[in-house]
Design a protein around this nucleic acid. Structure first.
Lengths: 219, 219
DNA sequence: CCCGTTTCAGGTGAAAACACCTGATTCGGC
DNA sequence: GCCGAATCAGGTGTTTTCACCTGAAACGGG
């Protein structure tokens, strides 16, 4: 009698990638794609309709509900489901955020299929998968922590700051952003300076880059 | 006797997507993946080693040699090979550039597999595939052409401008960019203003967004 | 109750970015 | 030789961005 396959769910807004991924996962042997979802929101609506998956392959940058939110939701509602984060970028903050949100592994979209397989195997059999990439980034972050602030590795942004960050990714001046947020230009000044400090950047372009890399702003 | 399958080549730097895509294309029936390449450069090196493909699925944003360059190279060296452009963004300029470079179709990475299939079929049987998306964008561009400049739809950037654009996607000041490019700050001023005009933006953030959307700068 | 945190908002000055102008080279094509 | 296009570079002035202050109001928890 064959051993039961592990049930995998794919959550990614890129349908083509997702479909291909499905075929890849199915071809591995030992894994079976239970269902797919377009984004976090879609996923939360579908998970109740199926058997409980063993593992979720979760994209980070998605519209509607991103990977970070989805991971938090999953940990709260289905803590037994394991999360493998899938990202375009090897961004330190993204890695830390996803692991803090309960991910068991983090792989890049341009990794080899063999690494995907290794990640799935690692998570199902050992409970986690830490690639060299992840380890390397984490060590780098640890090293930075001395310089920056002893507080902690992860930068936590408030709702208001994220709102501002999104607007900063436009051709609006800070004055115009202030109007849109019903705030004084001085307050915006404050948000900007606070973010410069938190995100370790010095210019508005730096803010934009951070927002894009972390999926706060989607082009 | 079965009809011979069409030979497809995949060019994309995201290995996972590419592998999935390969399985998807193979599963369609009537198509067979001949080989895959990591980027344009890799592709130009591999194409001589195989039979001539019928169609190339070509990603636009790639390191080393992007889809645009690759399309031009292909038209020059293997004009019979048909190109289906594959992109993350439904960017007007990107669409126009790729079609000008000889692409027969343009689809998004988050389209349905059925659209990929339709695009492959369209290109192989009719010689082209114009999705609603493409048609819509092109009409939009036509409409814009009156307002902007009667010259033409596509913005052509010089080497120097592209170099500047890349550096603008950083926290360097224009003065520092000038130093890096061995130019006077005034000259940089000129490049900036010229690009504001050409790209129809008003601020440096606008430049950054353009550069990212068009793959001139890869995060 | 006080304390820390978050949110808000003001002032000042310096640096950078933006707008609009000018003209000198170089280079290839007609 | 002349012309247009591309490249380079200077001047002047305004607006925006950035740096570094300050403090008030609101709120939840020890």
């Amino acid at each position: 009698m064959p051993v039961k396959d592990f049930d995998v769910v794919l959550v990614d807004d890129h349908v083509l990638l997702r479909n291909g991924l499905a075929k890849l996962v199915d071809s591995f042997g030992g894994y079976r794609v239970l269902f797919e979802a377009d984004n976090g929101k879609d996923f939360t609506e579908k998970i109740g309709l199926h058997a409980m998956p063993d593992i979720v392959l979760l994209d980070i940058n998605m519209p509607e509900m991103d990977g970070y939110e989805t991971a938090l939701w999953l940990r709260k509602n289905f803590p037994l489901v394991k999360i493998l984060a899938l990202s375009m970028y090897d961004n330190e903050n993204a890695i830390i955020r996803m692991f803090k949100a309960g991910a068991k592994g983090y792989i890049l979209k341009d990794c080899e299929p063999s690494e995907l397989r290794a990640a799935l195997d690692g998570i199902m059999h050992k409970g986690f998968y830490y690639s060299e990439l992840v380890t390397g980034r984490l060590i780098h972050t640890i090293n930075k922590m001395d310089d920056d602030q002893p507080g902690g590795g992860l930068t936590q942004l408030s709702e208001r700051e994220i709102e501002f960050l999104k607007l900063a990714c436009s051709e609006l001046t800070y004055k115009e952003i202030a109007e849109k947020m019903f705030l004084s230009p001085r307050t915006i000044d404050g948000y900007r300076d606070a973010l410069f400090e938190k995100l370790n950047v010095k210019t508005r372009v730096g803010l934009v880059m951070y927002a894009i890399k972390n999926g706060i702003f989607s082009l």
